[in-house]
Simulated scan of single mutants.
Amino acid sequence: MSELLSVRNLVKRYETPRGTVHAVDDVSFEIPVGHSVAVVGESGCGKSTLALSVLQLVAPTSGQVNFDGTDLIGASRSALTRLRREIGVVFQDPASSLNPRMRVGDIVGEPLRVHEKLRGRSLHDRVTKLFNDVGLTADAMDRYPHQFSGGQRQRISIARALALEPKLIVLDEPTSALDVSVQAQVLNLLQDLKARKNLSYLYISHSLATVEYLADILIVMYLGRVIEKGPADDIFRDPRHPYTRLLIDSAPSLDPLNRRLSRPPSGEIPSPSNRPAGCHFASRCSRATDLCRKDPQPDEIERASNHRVTCHHPIGT
């Protein structure tokens, strides 16, 4: 599989009066062409900072972000402008990410006016096609964002992200503000678009129910670090890190036939500016030993083909 995005040893730290916050700590992963990579974890694990660092909306402390053969870190402004045409973004709350003073047809068409200088009939036809691609009709183009439901607004956000025919779309909690039935509709749309347009996704979420449906590859983060990653089906079927097991057990399912018992993770997450000396999850882990509490997180262990875990005592051993 050819790689569209390659992230190597990415680090993002913030200095605060309380100490150094290790928001993203030595994270590496790849997104193959036409694949969905999901990053999951509880609030504060660093997944949104990771997405912003990939997009260069925050400056990483160190590491590499290689998109389609070009390292984004240190790239010139003109190079970033050119490359960002190939990366779309869909944010969590469509109500705040869509300009309330603009008609939605103008919102979707804005990238085409700015980057491709389209006007008149050519612009109208392209925007009409984008609306059709996300399941909306052309007569909606003259309305304002507040005149749509939450699910329809997110479809408009997706249409805008598609405007310049990107290769990668970064989805930051795109369904968290929607009810379950609408979530399923939006996820179905994303799956359909991925197949039809050979899109790649970087999908940020705390909801394993949506991740289970959408992801090809799963990355689990805890306090800035990747603690498990690999094929999503393998991890859902056979999680090896105790934290991943807890996340899966706590996640309701979008499938009404799957009566998964929800058991929320117990214990408090340590402060990202005062992380434990040993394994960061040890204080919440039933498998923790003195080794876990004293020694840092071990190197990745490959449990199966491309399924890696960082744990002193992985499940199944």
Score class of each variant (00 low, 15 high):
Leu5Arg: 01
Ser6Pro: 01
Glu15Gly: 02
His22Ala: 12
Val24Lys: 07
Ser28Pro: 07
Glu30Arg: 08
Glu30Ser: 14
Pro32Cys: 05
His35Glu: 15
Val39Trp: 07
Val39Glu: 05
Lys47Met: 10
Thr49His: 13
Thr49Trp: 12
Ser53Glu: 09
Val54Leu: 05
Val54Gln: 06
Pro60Glu: 05
Asn66Glu: 14
Thr70Met: 12
Asp71Ala: 06
Ile73Tyr: 09
Ile73Val: 15
Ala75Met: 09
Arg77Cys: 03
Arg84Asp: 03
Gln92Ser: 12
Pro94His: 10
Ser96Cys: 12
Ser96Ile: 14
Pro100Phe: 05
Pro100His: 12
Gly105His: 01
Gly105Trp: 06
Asp106Val: 13
Val108Ala: 07
Val108Ile: 13
Glu110Asn: 07
Pro111Ile: 11
Pro111Asn: 10
Arg113Gly: 06
Val114Asp: 02
Leu118Asp: 03
Leu123Asn: 06
Leu123Tyr: 04
Asp125Gln: 15
Lys129Pro: 04
Lys129Trp: 11
Phe131Ser: 00
Asp133Gly: 02
Asp139Cys: 01
Ala140Glu: 13
Asp142Gln: 13
Pro145Ser: 13
Pro145Gln: 09
Gln147Cys: 03
Phe148Ala: 11
Ser149Gln: 04
Gln152Asn: 04
Gln154Lys: 03
Gln154Ser: 06
Ile156Gly: 05
Ile156Met: 07
Ala159His: 03
Ala161Ser: 14
Leu162Asp: 07
Leu168Cys: 06
Ile169Glu: 03
Ile169Ala: 02
Val170Glu: 10
Asp179Gly: 08
Val182Ala: 09
Val182Asn: 02
Ala184Arg: 05
Gln185Ala: 10
Asp192Gly: 03
Ala195Cys: 06
Ser200Val: 09
Ser205Gly: 09
Ile217Arg: 08
Val220Ala: 09
Tyr222Ile: 05
Leu223Met: 12
Val226Gln: 04
Ile227Gly: 03
Glu228Ser: 10
Lys229Phe: 02
Ala232Gly: 08
Ile235Trp: 00
Arg237Thr: 12
Asp238Ala: 14
Pro239Gln: 05
Arg240Met: 08
His241Lys: 02
Thr244Val: 03
Leu246Phe: 01
Ile248His: 14
Ile248Asp: 07
Ala251Ile: 11
Leu254Gly: 01
Leu261Lys: 15
Arg263Asp: 12
Glu268Cys: 05
Ile269His: 06
Ser273Ile: 08
Ser273Gly: 04
Ala282Ile: 04
Cys285Tyr: 01
Ser286Trp: 13
Thr289Pro: 08
Asp290His: 06
Arg293Glu: 07
Arg293Ile: 02
Asp295Thr: 14
Glu300Ile: 11
Glu300Arg: 02
Glu302Thr: 08
Glu302Lys: 01
Arg303Met: 15
Ser305Glu: 15
His307Asn: 04
Thr310Ser: 15
Ile315Trp: 01
